[in-house]
């Protein structure tokens, strides 16, 4: 579970997040929409424990990230916009390396299994990552989180730059993870993808959560109109 309570954060006097309250339950996918600089990445970095809030509390499964970042990081899987893996290693080797860093030892079969579950074709497992598409790298990134048995997934612009097929595969995978009990927070510009994947949507503007709604309550077009209204005001 993800919880942010009255969180504020500023950089050199400029307020990036203001009194943010947010909660994502187990099995739920929350989409954070917002323009560049709205505070989406800052929120994710606070959840990752890389930034400390100026005020307020941030919890991952009821553990305070501010004081126990080592603990909370064990629970988190993180998929950035660009999953930059080691280009000279294969997908399998990258997964193996990152798992070992987390203290996890898997057999080759198990690792291959994780990659397959996350949608990477078998023949790509042993190819060097330098030859991967962005979508393929993202699948390895999710496999890293999945193999870690992450309870919480944080995704920063995951669909950006993906072709429609890869984007669709990502949506299916995220839903599958949520159905298995993962808590997912996804920051994005992509209104339609967020509407399709997430259970709940939050709109951030200048560090303030201006609107929260359930995706089942709006159509994609309505969401777009709503988003544009908030952005223009």
């Amino acid at each position: 579970m993800i919880q942010l309570q009255n969180v504020s954060k500023s950089f050199k006097g400029s307020l990036a997040i203001k009194n943010l309250n947010l909660e994502v339950q187990k099995g739920e996918i929350l989409g954070l929409l917002g323009a560049n600089g709205a505070g989406k990445s800052t929120t994710i970095n606070m959840l990752l424990g890389f930034l400390n809030p100026d005020s307020g509390e941030v919890y991952i499964n009821d553990i305070d990230t501010n004081h126990n970042s080592q603990e909370t990081r064990k629970l988190i899987g993180y998929i950035p916009e660009n999953v930059n893996l080691y280009p000279y290693l294969s997908g399998l080797e990258n997964l193996d390396y990152f798992c070992k860093l987390a203290g996890l030892k898997y057999s080759k079969n198990e690792l291959e299994n994780y990659l397959t579950i996350c949608g990477l074709e078998n023949k790509a497992h042993v190819k060097k990552v330098s030859g991967y598409s962005k979508g393929m790298r993202q699948k390895v990134g999710i496999a890293i989180a999945y193999a870690k048995k992450a309870k919480v997934y944080l995704l920063d612009e995951p669909a950006s730059g993906l072709d429609p097929l890869a984007s669709n595969e990502l949506s299916i995978l995220l839903k599958k993870l949520a159905s298995e009990g993962a808590t997912i927070l996804m920051a994005s510009h992509d209104i339609f993808r967020v509407r399709e994947v997430c259970n709940r949507i939050g709109i951030l503007k200048n560090g303030v959560l201006v609107k929260e709604l359930y995706s089942k309550d709006v159509s994609a077009n309505e969401l777009e109109t709503l988003y544009l209204q908030f952005m223009q005001n």
Binding site: L48, F50, Q70, R73, K74, I76, Y78, P80, N82, V83, N84, L85, Y86, F98, C99, L101, A102, G103, G141, I144, K148
Partner: peptide
């Protein structure tokens, strides 16, 4: 490349 975040997240 952003990998430093991943490395730290994995426990390094």
């Amino acid at each position: 490349s952003g990998r430093l975040k991943l490395l730290v997240l994995q426990g390094a």
